[in-house]
Each structure stands twice: as C-alpha cells, then as structure tokens.
Design a protein around this nucleic acid. Structure first.
Length: 790
RNA sequence: GGGCGGUUAGCUCAGUGGUAGAGCGCUUCGUUGACAUCGAAGAGGCCAGAAGUUCGAUCCUUCUACCGCCCACCA
C-alpha cells in the first residue's frame, strides 16, 4: 500500500503532533509545570462507597470505551429499523451519501456523518422508525485517476493490462478501501444500518442502472450523437460540462489577413481547416458579401476557397466582426456548423497532436506548433498585428487543470430539458425544501439553463453502457486508434453476466437489421453520477422491495453544497423520472471545511485534519461537537485543533459532573420523595425551556444552535451554578436538603444526557450506564433508544 | 457578463426593531475533595460606509466599498 493510501490514517497521533497548534499549548503547558504539583493520591481515589461503585477515573478516556460502546449499539440491533422497540412506528429515512471507495474518509465526510447521525439519533429517540442506509460509490473517473497514480508509483502503467485483469485489480482496490472507510464510519459513531449497506457496483444496482438507461432510450431521452464534447488529453476521456472548470488565461490574440477579411484568433493551430468565414447578417460593413459566396484566398499552406456564412452568433463589436470557424474543436463553431450543415474536419487528434491536414506541422503538439504557425503566417505577410495581453476564459479538466480540447465524438447524451422541467416543478410546489432556502434560486437557475448531459466515459471503471453495435451494417462510428482500443478492450471485457437481454435497439446475438452476428458492445462506461443520481431509490430496492415501499421517499438528503448540481439535482430528476416521486423531502446542504486561515483543506497544502486521527486523540464526541457548533447550513466551517480540544474539555466536564453526582449519591439518602424548594423548581423550569429550545432547533435543522445551547447550559448553568449551589446542601446534616439537592442533580443529568446524546453519543451512552436511572427491558439499557424528553 | 453570500471583540462565529453575545485567546486572582482538560473577576466592539423608513436600526430598504463563491460558447 502506498503512503498516500488511507492506511496512513492509522497513525493518527502523528497528524496531531505535527500540527501548528502547539503554540498555545506550550504556554499552557509551561504554566502548568510551574504550578504546584497535584497530589497524585487524589486521583481516582475512592473516598466513599459512591466512588467505589462508579469507578470513574477523574478523566474521560474516550479511546478506551468508544469501540466497546459502538459494539453494544451494533449488537443491540437498534440500528436496524425492523428491530427497534414497538414504540418506533413512523419511518424516518436518510440515505447516506455514499463515500468514494477509493480512499480514507476526510474531514468533509466527518461533517456529514455527524449531522446525519444527529438527525437519526434524535428521531430515533423520538420514536421514529429510523433507517440510515450506508453505502459506497465506485466513483468511476475519480477512482480511475487515483488508481492510475497508484500504478504510476508502482512503476506500472495501465496500457498492456487486459481489461478484465485491470478491472479485477481496481475492484479489489476499491473493496479494500471500502472496508477501511466503513470501519471509519463506525469510529465516527454512525448509527447506520449495516445490514442494508449497498455498493454502486452491486449486481442489482448495475442492472437497475442500465435499465434506467434503456428506459430513457425507449422514451427518446437518451440519444447517440456525434457531438462536440470536452476531451481531456491527459485522461483520454470525455467529461461532462460540470467536470470542467473555467479559468482565466492570458494569451496573445493574433490578427490575420484572411482574403479580404481580418480575423482574430488565440488558437492559430486550429485554423488549417478553416474554410468558412462567418459574419453577422446585419453587419453593414460586409453587406457586399452574400451567404454562400465563395472567395479564393491565400492561407497557411497555400490557396484555398472559403465560403461566406452569415450567422447571428457573431458579435459585431468584437474584433473585426468576422471569424473563421473550426467546428471540430470549438463548441460555438460546432453550433454554427450544425445550423448551416457545414463540413467538420478534425485538425487535432485525441492526444493533442496535429493531423496530416496541417501539412508540414503534422504530428506536432499544439504548444510546439502555435509559434511556428504564427511565424509562417508572418513570413507570408498575413499577420496584421498581435495583442499580447489578451485575457480570456478557457475550459480545463477539473482534475488535472489541463486545457480541454473539444472533439467531436459519438457519445450517449441525455436530454435534460424535460427532466429539468419536472425537477423545477417539484421544488416550486414545495415537495422538496432546501435548507438553507437560498439554494433554491441557484438550483432553478442551473436547471433552467441546463444542457444535455454526456453520459459516455472512455474509462474502464464503471457501469458499462448497455448498447451494442453491428460491425457489418454500422461499423464503428469513428475510426482511428480509438477504434482499435475499443476492440482490444472488447475481447477481454468483463461483466458479461450482466449483459442485458432487454436492450431494444439491437440484439446482442444478431443484428436485427442485417442479421449479422458480429455484434460488439459499446466499450464506454456511464458517468458515475448517472448511477449515484439514482441512489435513493436504487439503494432501497426499487421497484419491488419492501424497503422501497416503506422508506421511499426518504426524509432528508444531507450533503455538501458543492455537489448540488452534480448530485442533488440529478437525483431529483432521475428520481422523478423513474419513480414518479421526489427522492427526498428536505435537502440540507452543509458547507465545506476550511482551516484557520480559511483555506480549503487539501493534501497538497498539507493542512488536512484527519478526522480519525483527531478522534483518536481527543475523542470522537469532541470532533463531532467541533464540527457541529458554528456549522450553519450552507456556510463553510472553520475548524482547528484548538476548537476540538475545547470540546474534549467539555467531555471531561460532563464526565466530572457525573463523577460529582455519583460520588455523593448513596441509595439511602436518595430513597423517598424529595422536597424541592423554589430555586429547585426554577431550575427545573429552566431545564424544560432548554428541552424546548433544543427540540425546536433540531426539528428546524439548527444543529449549531442546539449544540451551543447545550454546551452553555451544561457548563455554565448546571456545573457552575446549580452544582455549586448544591454543594453546601449536600454537606448539610438535613437529609431532606441532601435528598432534594441530589435528586435535582440526577434529574438534570438524566435529561442532559438524553439531549446531548445525538451530538456526543459515546460519552453520553457511557455515563448513562452508570446513572442510577430506571431501565426498561425494551431499551436493553441503552440511551440510544431512550425516550426523548418532552 | 449574470447571480449569490459575507463584512459584529485579537481569532472563529451567533444574534435581536428597544443601551451588544458565545467560544477560544488575553489580563488579574483563586483552587489538597467532581473537574487545572478547573473556578472567579476583568479588559476588549461608532455591529464596513452613506442615505432612507421608524419614536427608535447592528437588524428593514436603497446605494457604495472591499472579501469570498457559483454560473456563463465572444473568436
């Protein structure tokens, strides 16, 4: 296993120690060292029978108990909605966003695990029949990129490895990571139902995903088209529009003489095939030229005949108002060519090298060729001028940041407009609510301007497109090396067992048109978001499973706002298409985690906080609290080790609150009805108010607020005031005073542990075990299924 | 080019139409029986700027300035 792999997460302490936080710690440390040493005898010494009974050391040590507690929960069966006590009736469902099975969990995962677990635990205690369904995503392109890096480190290369062998190796790699990831979810306290976990490459998921593709095809929504796509030269695959990002680039803008016209371009290397010159139909400067008119002119490699095209896409105010087009390598040009049924010629191959059409420049890379071409045009006297600092936007691959080289490729596209229309309606009608609400606008805007979705990926890792081609009557739609690659892959393809019999376009065994048996399957795979876009209903076993009937539509979809378009919008569209119903009623979008300096966390910056590392050091509960407080929906979260340490201290505080109670508690005093005084009653009333606030906050997804209130109450009201007030009464000789004081503390602690449980499940469950409270058989003694206080 | 969010204590952020809040950090003091991973006290803010609505604005409206982000096929 290479260093970068998740296994390294098993040395968590390293992460913490190497962090920069040490400054404040050292000051504290030194101060502590100058202070008087504590008498060691005072630690954990039993002063009375109460203390002996509880055997609580003075410090909370999460590492010792967390795994144990998790096992107890798991073994109780209560993660499974079918095994919950009878009072749990109305379902409450969250489908977990399936983490990519290609690495360890990062802090962003910890955010969603925490928030979702809070909701699930809260609803479970309130008596809902909670299902939190865990899963994992094969993450097609992402995983392939990760895997290629791994190969590279091993000095290997994917070329030459047969398709099935490669696939098997990637599957193994993914399953291994998946296991690690699942184990990490347990460590974070995720109370999800492991008996229902799903993987996007489970055979039934693959089959259903392909069925959706076919259904869309039958409905005329999926079509195959020779369309311009975003081609990444490095990754050798097409990408969806969403998988590219726009960056600003400064490049020279060249003005060339093109017959009677002057044209401007930043990409001279594409201009070899330019034989159409386009201008706006109402541009008076060029009214003497007629649409379709031929003009002879001298160009890069000799004389050519250009054709005049009039199109309204031209901006009369830009440059000279005239441009030539390269339909094969530019989306705007492609559209113009489509409108006027013009020829399209490929100039650059899929490796970014110039083709024979470039004459003497054939075989050269874009970068090398560009200055040479400019030089040649200049020598021919065709270069008019150069704007050096021309700034424009270009598309780059979101993974490698290399410029996208648009290419025309036969791909499968999904018509989005009809799907988007329904997705807009569902939200307009309030069937889905966004938290925070402002994302509604962003969602609408995107859907209203949506373009068709390229589903084809020229990668191995993923769900195979269930489409077939007849070699005899169709041949492959395109030629070249791609063709050979495809055929080589074909010979060793996997997943033969899932070959669909139902594909209506072509029969895999004989061509319905010519009867030929030379049938090959499309070697491409589906965009990974096509399967994850169906996740809520697929994971629940659509259409026949009992789970689907019981738990769909789900209640909440909780995920990062950064995948609103990638995932959430597509789940809504595909969910509505396939099931006719929305996949979830509420979308809660959490922010991205940033470090102290507002920087996005990334491995390359070295500012990542490994959630499991800090959890091992400070306790999972502390990490969860740190990720909850100050975490408003849709807002980015700033996290630092200081903050986590603060909540570790809070855990210790809770621990010692209970330690104090148990230290003084003895059955004899507590027996009998307490006589509360006015101040006690006021405290009880305050507690009731707290319950109301916290409950309301949780219902309204204000987790940050609830957590802060609880923190404040436990520490500054309960510990600092109520407990301090109780001390003299506990010491008093009057048994009534003693009893009332203690009973009050126990009462508050009981409620507090319940309220805190969704946020800090481990410590509250541990303390609950030791609390002298009534236990019902139905709960098996677990706080996890106790009744939420009213 | 469209759109969104932010601007409140040194830092990270809550918050409400009625003289400003938390955590962390800082200062001083205290603490041998729950907790030093602690307690008590304290310093620290024209709530970005301007105008408007209002008896009254940090909060509502408009504009401005910065910061951040998303979307976008001007060669």
């Amino acid at each position: 296993m290479s260093k970068e792999l998740p296994i390294s997460a098993h040395s968590p302490i390293k992460t913490a120690r190497t962090s920069v936080i040490a400054r404040s710690q050292t000051t504290k440390q030194s101060r502590r060292n100058t202070g008087l040493p504590r008498a060691p005898s005072q630690l954990g010494v039993a002063r009375n029978d109460g203390c002996e009974r509880l055997q609580l050391p003075s410090q909370y040590n999460p590492a010792e108990i967390e795994a144990d507690i998790y096992r107890k929960w798991d073994e109780s069966g209560f993660f499974n909605p079918d095994k919950l006590p009878a009072r749990h009736k109305k379902p409450f469902t969250i489908i977990m966003p399936p983490p990519n099975a290609n690495g360890a969990l990062h802090i962003g995962h910890a955010v969603f695990v925490t928030l979702q677990d809070i909701m699930i635990r809260f609803q479970r205690m309130r008596g809902r029949r909670t299902l939190w369904l865990p899963g994992a995503d094969h993450a097609g392109f992402e995983t392939q990129v990760v895997f290629d890096k791994k190969l590279e480190k091993e000095g290997r290369d994917r070329s030459g490895i047969p398709r099935d062998e490669l696939y098997r190796e990637m599957l193994e790699f993914s399953l291994e990571n998946k296991k690690i990831m699942e184990d990490q979810l347990r460590k974070l306290g995720a109370s999800c139902d492991w008996s229902r976990k799903k993987f996007t490459l489970d055979p039934d998921i693959i089959k259903k995903t392909q069925e959706t593709f076919v259904a869309l095809y039958d409905d005329g929504l999926v079509y195959r088209g020779e369309r311009i796509v975003n081609w990444c030269v490095k990754h050798q695959t097409a990408l969806a529009d969403l998988e590219t990002k726009r960056i600003e680039e400064k490049a020279p803008l060249y003005y060339f003489q093109y017959g009677p016209f002057v044209i401007a371009t930043a990409r001279p290397e594409t201009k070899f095939g330019d034989k159409y010159v386009v201008m706006h139909p109402r541009d008076r400067r060029y009214k003497e030229y007629k649409h379709g008119q031929h003009i002879e002119l001298e160009w890069i490699n000799g004389p050519i005949v250009a054709t005049v095209i009039k199109d309204e896409a031209i901006d009369m105010n830009f440059g000279t108002g005239v441009m030539t087009i390269t339909p094969w390598h530019d989306p705007v040009d492609f559209d113009i060519a489509e409108r006027h049924t013009l020829d399209k010629e490929q100039i650059i191959d899929r490796r970014g090298k110039l083709l024979p059409v470039a004459g003497e420049f054939a075989g050269a890379s874009i970068k090398d060729a560009r200055p040479l071409i400019v030089e040649k045009l200049k020598a021919k006297g065709l270069l008019i001028k150069t704007e050096e600092e021309y700034s424009h936007h270009i598309s780059v691959c979101y993974k490698c940041s290399r410029p996208i080289e648009p290419q025309i490729l036969p791909q499968w596209f999904l018509k989005m407009a009809p799907l988007a229309k329904k997705a807009i309606e569902a939200v307009e009608k309030g069937k889905i609510v966004f938290v925070p609400g402002r994302f509604k606008k962003i969602y609408f805007h995107w859907l209203r301007n949506i373009r068709d979705w390229n589903l084809s990926r020229q990668i191995l890792w993923g769900i195979r497109i269930p489409a077939y081609f007849c070699l005899d009557c169709e041949g492959f739609p395109d030629g070249g090396d791609y063709d050979q690659t495809r055929q080589r892959m074909e010979n060793t393809m996997m997943w033969r067992e899932h070959d669909p019999q139902w594909f209506t376009a072509l029969d895999p065994r004989s061509c319905p048109q010519c009867g030929s048996h030379k049938i090959v399957r499309d070697a491409d795979t589906l965009d990974t978001w096509f399967s994850s876009g169906q996740w809520p209903f697929l994971a629940l076993g659509y259409p026949d499973a009992k789970d689907y009937k019981t738990f769909y539509p789900t209640d909440v979809m909780e995920t990062g706002w950064d995948i609103l378009f990638f995932w959430v919008a597509r789940m809504i569209m595909l969910g509505l298409y396939r099931t006719g119903r929305v996949p979830f009623k509420t979308v809660y979008l959490n922010g991205l985690v940033r470090d102290k300096d507002r920087q996005k966390m990334s491995k390359s910056k070295g500012n990542v906080i490994d959630p499991l590392g800090v959890a091992a050091l400070y306790g999972t509960d502390a990490v969860r609290m740190a990720l909850t407080v100050g975490n408003l929906p849709g807002n980015d979260i700033i996290i630092s080790e200081d903050k986590i340490r603060g909540y570790r201290n809070f855990a210790t505080k809770l621990w010692n609150i209970q330690r104090f109670i148990l230290l003084n508690d003895d059955a004899k005093t507590v027996r009998g009805a307490p006589k509360f005084n006015a101040k006690d009653r006021k405290a009880q009333k305050e507690l009731k108010t707290l319950v109301k606030i916290v409950t309301k906050d949780l219902e309204a997804f204000r987790f940050h607020h609830a957590a802060e209130k609880l923190y404040h109450y436990a520490w500054h009201t309960f510990a600092d005031k109520i407990i301090e007030d109780a001390k003299p009464r506990i010491a008093s000789a009057d048994p009534d005073e003693r009893r009332a004081a203690l009973k009050l503390l126990i009462e508050i602690q009981t409620t507090l542990l319940k309220l805190l449980h969704p946020f800090m499940p481990f410590i509250t469950e541990t303390l609950w075990e030791k609390l002298p409270a009534s236990r019902s058989k139905a709960t098996k003694g677990l706080l996890m299924v106790e009744q939420w206080p009213e």
